[in-house]
Design a protein around this nucleic acid. Structure first.
Length: 636
RNA sequence: GGCAGGGUAGCUCAGCCGGUUAGAGCGCUGGUCUCAUAAGCCGGAGGUCGGGGAUUCGAGUUCCCCCCCUGCUACCA
């Protein structure tokens, strides 16, 4: 087989443990990899972890660990989960791997030598005490630091730059020449419009921290480490041996590079630009998927509603969970996880329509023919049904190749519906009574053949379950049987069906404790986050009287307020409350203000404080004293 | 503010170049078979197709205006 496929997931940043989003990306990628293997492609499937950068360095230090120790731990968690999920990766790359670092340096040299990298100066407003650069628009009153309010100065820091600006036209050409280079379409348009606005050269090295890949020796500039994104993106080729033993570079260019929608820009703009600079071909598809919400709400650690993929898989079955994620959501869209939806899918799609179908033919063949099934008359009696089934299967495959996993599964289930319908329409039990055994046997055999074909094409999603179905039908799923039953559309050889217990037992009720699987952890965190009274009083709260309120032009949410806090002059506070309060209604009313907040610049206006307010689904309410208090009264 | 994509049955959505009674799945509901995991199958109810205007013999489908949602982007104070 000459055809090759290369599937990648992003390498996951080790600042967080695996959650459902990681699992989703990885499972889609795994499904695609398994699909290409099934079709006989020489397939390489890559995943791994991204371990460099300032954030990791800091996280490690705060835990009293070295960055490497810390990265080892989290990286290990990812790998362990994927192993437990039986993810069929061919390589698990870590950006701390020696080969990776060598490959990155090699790539840097190549880009440097081709003139795409130059040393320059990053010039900006620098706050010495915060050790941070700010852009013009972040600054307060022209030159004050938005974090600490101190004066900033203009400082130049050395940096190497990548001439991204040179690639603007080439990128646009790629987008327009290759229709499916970025999926889904909607996301592609966003990328194009971003590029059309103009690309700036990219600062690709840092001198402010250490935890990263050093520049190549010949450049001899040890202060610099590479910016994490350059380092990270190159993993897709260093994993194939780029810059080292390049025998696996035969897999390049990638067939599908899966990413979450948040990191699409890096993959659809920077990454192809780097590749062009390296003189390498561009990936066939960059595919961005959406997020998972939980019962309609965004998942977040603070809400404690993060779905732990392992707990779900343990409770409901790994392959059921895989089916659910791929079936429930159109690719690219956000999806909602709820136990109800998952249970519905399992009971309705899997138990009733798939599992039960197998049981139906086990039952009939047992009663009518001592479990013997023969395809010999199937074409004579049921050509029409089989033709229709094959149409659905072909469509299913097309959808899968376009990453439309939900439509792919929908089409397969249409084939199952044909099988279920046929049984009621042709009523084999009636045919048996009438003595038309041949017809009855043919109907049972047709259904067996439909099950065989569907289980093969479903195999990438549910590897083990479909293999069990295949076994009862006396074959094994492989490239050979894919070719025989799908490509060549042959029928099953005569066989004796093997009786097995139901594949998908019904789920009677929720198997995970509400409200969330990780609730215990959250409670612990809350305890950890208790503060002392002294800490509380670090926040100075005061009662203020609103002297003046005006709408901020061109802003949906902002009102500009002048608030008397009993100080020499009133404060200017910009608050996002326009949707809930009109400017007039606020005049001369009192509010509770955080008085010692660092000033911030919001839409070009300095805001010297924050109003306290409570917000829920109904809207937002300002916190106010019950009776009028003197401006500047303290709250506590 | 700019750009893009949306607003169609209770829910999730499909409806291509304008053309007979607007579709699917889920949910709800009535019926029915018995091979099967009380599964399957058949039928039914349910829609001012965001609002208004225009073009047309005819518009969910084209054009204009407005409202609302989502995403990207911006700060032009």
């Amino acid at each position: 087989m000459n055809q090759k496929a290369y599937i990648t997931t992003p390498i996951y940043y080790v600042n967080d443990v695996p959650h459902i989003g990681h699992a989703y990306t990885t499972i889609i990628a795994d499904t695609m990899a398994r699909y290409y293997r099934l079709k006989g492609y020489d397939t390489f499937f890559l995943t791994g972890t991204d371990e460099h950068g300032q954030k990791i360095e800091e996280a490690a230090i705060s835990r009293g660990r070295t960055p490497k120790e810390y990265a080892d731990e989290i990286s290990g968690k990812f790998k362990a989960l994927w192993d437990e999920f039986e993810i069929s990766y061919d390589k698990f790359i870590r950006t701390t791997d020696q080969e990776h670092k060598i490959g990155v340096q090699k790539a840097f040299s190549t880009m440097f030598n081709s003139g795409d990298i130059y040393k320059g100066e990053y010039e900006g407003h620098y706050c010495v005490s915060c050790e941070t650069f700010f852009t013009d628009t972040q600054l307060i009153d022209e030159n004050l630091c938005p974090d600490c309010g101190k004066e900033t100065r203009i400082v130049k820091e050395e940096s190497y730059f990548f001439k991204l600006s040179n690639y603007q036209e080439k990128l646009l050409k790629w987008y327009s020449d290759d229709e499916k280079c970025v999926l889904p379409k909607g996301k592609k348009s966003e990328v194009i419009s971003f590029v059309k606005q103009g690309l700036r050269d990219l600062s690709i090295t840092r001198t402010s921290f250490d935890w990263g890949v050093k520049l190549p020796d010949e450049i001899n500039d040890p202060k610099h480490v590479m910016y994490v994104w350059l380092d990270a993106l190159l993993n897709y080729i260093t994993a194939l041996g780029y810059g080292n033993d390049e025998k696996n570079m035969k897999y390049w260019p990638a067939t599908i590079q899966l990413v979450g929608k948040d990191i699409l820009r890096f993959h659809a703009i920077y990454w192809p630009a780097f590749l062009m600079s390296l003189g390498l071909p561009l990936p066939k598809h960059i595919a961005a998927h959406g997020w998972w919400t939980r019962n309609g709400e965004k998942m977040s650690k603070s809400k404690g509603n993060v779905v732990n993929p392992k707990e779900v898989a343990d409770a409901y079955g790994l392959e059921n969970f895989r089916y659910f994620m791929l079936r429930e959501v159109p690719f690219g869209q956000d999806g909602d996880f709820s136990q109800k939806a998952l249970i519905d899918r399992i009971n309705s799609d899997l138990s009733n329509e798939l599992g039960n179908l197998l049981n139906r033919i086990i039952g009939m063949s047992g009663k009518y023919s001592d479990f013997n099934i023969s395809s010999k008359d199937v074409f004579d009696y049921h050509k029409k049904e089989l033709t229709s089934v094959m149409e659905h299967i072909r469509l299913a495959e097309t959808n899968l190749q376009d990453m439309q996993t939900n439509r792919y599964l929908e089409e397969l289930w249409k084939a199952l519906t044909i099988a279920n319908q046929s049984i009621t329409v042709y009523e084999p039990w009636v045919k048996m009574k009438e003595g038309d055994k041949e017809f009855a046997f043919a109907t049972v055999a047709m259904v067996a053949n439909i099950l065989a074909k569907v289980s093969i094409v479903l195999h990438p999603v549910m590897p083990k379950t479909t293999q069990k179905i295949a076994k009862t039908l006396n074959f094994e799923i492989s490239y050979d049987t894919y070719k025989k039953f799908i490509e060549d559309d042959s029928l099953l050889d005569d066989f004796k069906i093997e009786k097995i217990p139901p594949l998908f037992p019904k789920v009677e009720g929720e198997l995970l404790n509400s409200p969330t699987p990780s609730v215990k952890e959250e409670i612990k965190k809350e305890e950890d986050s208790l503060i002392t009274i002294d800490q509380f009083f670090q926040t100075k709260l005061k009662i203020g009287t609103i002297l003046d309120a005006t709408e901020v032009p061109k802003s949906k949410k902002l009102l500009k307020l002048r608030v008397d806090l009993g100080e020499e002059k009133p404060r200017q506070i910009v608050a996002g409350i326009k949707e809930f309060y009109s400017a007039e209604s606020l005049l001369n009313t009192q509010v509770c203000v955080v008085a010692n907040l660092k000033p911030a610049k919001i839409m070009g206006l300095v805001s010297e404080g924050m109003l306290l307010a409570a917000k829920d689904k109904e809207g937002l309410s300002l916190l106010r004293p019950q009776d009028s208090k003197k401006s500047g009264s303290s709250v506590g």
